[in-house]
């Protein structure tokens, strides 16, 4: 599998990262180098092998379905680049 510049532009958009045109060219080489290198994983016989889900075999604990935290709007908003009246402000999304 080999990436081209259009694919780099597409995944950059999927990742919501603006990548300037000249950087896209360099990334084609870098990402293809990495993907070529990890290709060797295909050599490993994994027939019947379960993909790892937990490294120490831990079972996720259950807890009571109860509210344990909340009512901290001020703290939640404190680091927002732009806030107003208890909300985060973002560029308009609905015309």
């Amino acid at each position: 599998m080999s990436l081209d510049k259009a694919t780099v532009a597409r995944i950059a958009h999927l990742a919501r990262i603006r990548v300037p045109e000249p950087d896209q060219e360099a990334l084609v080489g870098e990402l293809n180098g990495l993907l070529g290198w990890v290709e060797q994983l295909g050599e490993v016989d994994t027939k019947g092998v379960q993909p790892m889900a937990s490294v120490v075999g831990a079972v996720l604990p259950l807890r009571a379905d109860a509210v344990t935290d909340g009512a901290r709007a001020e703290a939640v908003l404190a680091n927002g680049p732009e806030t107003m009246a208890g909300f985060f402000v973002v560029p308009k999304v609905v015309e």
Partner: peptide, 12 residues
Amino acid sequence: AYYLQAQKVRTR
């Protein structure tokens, strides 16, 4: 091809 295979190799 990538993620699932990597997690299986991880089991190995």
